[in-house]
Design a protein around this nucleic acid. Structure first.
Lengths: 205, 205, 205, 205
DNA sequence: ATGTAAACGAGACGGTACGTCTTGTCTTAGT
DNA sequence: ACTAAGACAAGACGTACCGTCTCGTTTACAT
């Protein structure tokens, strides 16, 4: 997770149970306190672990929160609902459901804010969270192409740009709706949003 | 600004110069330190003001940062470039330019993160920043309707919902592109994004 | 006490009550925990004071303990028991009684140990404790000379050397008896010691 | 040294070289860092030994330092300079020379300070350091009696008390001179001190 | 002119968390 | 059984900010 492979053969090995306990404790603290009031000492206590153990494995609060939040998004699955529109609606609803959880809300935005001044953190967020979920866009497009709903790709560079654009629009809109407008991204909203998105992407003949 | 009208007639009046100095100092500190490392003591020093003065006017760091960042977005103007597409591209580019500034980046996301656990703060953000800029969407639509590019409104409720949706999509996409994907929202990207948005909003030309 | 005269006119003045509370708390902690297990956090808690207040006034544990212990020795008085021998016995007994108190025992030796590597600390000990009590030797000699038990001084340099020697012998012997040999410096021992000392200082009666 | 006779026959025997290396490393650390800043982890590293090995042989820092310092005092020898006064001066000078070494200074006072709250430690100090050196007083007296400079003993109890008193006076005075007054116990001072001591012990007829 | 009242700067206050360090124990693999 | 290596729980370290307070001073309006 925090991926240090010190190649050390000797000495007592790191407790494997501790990692999971720490990440779970981090999420619990995010729920109760939010990211800014979360303290590493408190997380350590909740996890039944010493502060040193925590600092040995993560560089600081931000890195820890990224890992704790990243696990949440790994639950996302692309459902097969029979049509591209239905598939998109399904995955956007799942995404909105995760973002509605307090540990995701508070943690995600806070580390994004920090990442504006920390290149390494930004890279970690991209690797652990963003790029991991782009698979959903790729899977969705492939499935739609198999169904004949979308034409096959021709230009690979253009294709990659489109994936990025879709991801920015989808993730950005859901996040803004949920966190800034503070309105629920419910079925009705998702249906409106999906309609606009699909129309924008599939020009009529 | 921080809006307390204590109706006090007597006593020494608050220094009007201090407000501006404090907000400018806050932005300078945001640029140099980022929101999380910004301290009120430091802001007070930079503004040549005592900490007490600061606390007398703002409840805390978050409120101060909201006010300091809000001023940045008041620069936004809807340009008249002759077509709806060009108008949108113009205002989105302006928005992207503001978001590219470090004081906006760091400050905005941080207070949004905090606002997930603080209803009053969320309200302040909406009042001072978000709702103030929805005027751009309204102006743009009115101008497009005057040009005949868009049909006039029929259902007022539906109309309000559409404004909100557009705002979530535009603001969300630009923020995600800029802060999460960390790619520039340059002319090329803005043109692609605007094409998708307009196609999505105006079914078959 | 810790003597910082920052000459600052402005700002909130330092609490005068805090000093006494801190020194008393330090002595209480010395009694209960000893010097090595005494922590500044604990002293602050006992004194009902924040740790920062403590660090604002003293550089560290050693300086604090010196001041706390120094106050103990200010109780010493030279009794007038009619003869030089009786006077010495009286003051040595008092000295032994103070050294028998756990706060003096533990604190004094610990700071002396530290002072072997800290010139400033050694100077502070000498100023606050040692030199302050040399007055007893001077008073005692003056009184003995007034009684005719000792001849008047002739060589001032020699006189100063003798005062230092007496002080090293008296303080050293009592400390060694009390702390290293861990035997009580009771009346019998004090009588034996005083006999040796006086014989050594006043060749043949 | 640290006196464990585990009587164990089986298993890998303890490295005999380790003991010497550890005590030497301890003295080196005392010189460089002083007793309070000395850490067992550092001593282990210096000695090329694991911390576990160290804890298996000594109960803690204090015991280790006592053993490391005790070896220093075993160098003391009673020189035969022809007269009691000269013999005393010789041994006191040796004692002062050892006390002038930083590993002795810092270590000795620190463990004495600790011993005020630790009966077992006090006993260890007495056994390993103090009582071992009382031999010097006994030898010196015997030699002086053989020379006819001192009368033979009559009362054994009184004799033991006198040895203790002499030891407290000599050790105490030298320690106080060296560590508290921080003046060198040089030849001149030793001569003055010895004169007072001998006069005190050998009343003129 | 003189109160009166609030804002001002300065900085001390009681707290809380920081990230590091040391302690003494434990767990591995190697000798 | 012993070793070296190093992870572990515990807890103190000294620092930095927090938000509050207590000063003495300044500035404005209302007498």
């Amino acid at each position: 997770m925090q991926s240090r492979t010190p190649a050390s053969r000797t000495g007592r090995p790191r407790s494997v149970a501790a990692d999971a306990a720490i990440l779970a404790a981090t999420r619990a603290a995010l729920v109760e306190l939010g990211c800014s009031k979360l303290t590493l000492g408190d997380v350590a206590t909740r996890a039944g672990v010493a502060k040193t153990t925590l600092y040995r494995r993560w560089a600081g609060k931000n890195e820890l929160v990224v890992d704790a939040v990243a696990e949440l998004f790994d639950e996302l699955r692309l459902p097969d609902r029979g049509s591209l529109a239905a598939d998109i609606e399904g995955v956007v609803l799942q995404f909105a459901a995760i973002l509605a959880r307090p540990e995701a809300k508070s943690g995600l935005m806070a580390v994004v804010a920090e990442s504006t001044r920390d290149e390494a953190l930004r890279e970690r967020i991209r690797t652990s969270i963003v790029d991991r979920q782009k698979r959903l866009v790729l899977e969705g497009r492939a499935r739609a192409q198999a169904r004949g709903e979308l034409p096959p790709e021709t230009d690979p560079a253009e294709s990659a740009r489109t994936v990025d654009l879709i991801f920015d629009v989808v993730a950005g809109a859901v996040v803004h709706r949920t966190l800034v407008s503070a309105e629920p991204a419910d079925e009705e909203w998702v249906r409106s949003f999906t309609r606009v998105l699909l129309l924008g992407l599939t020009p009529q003949p």
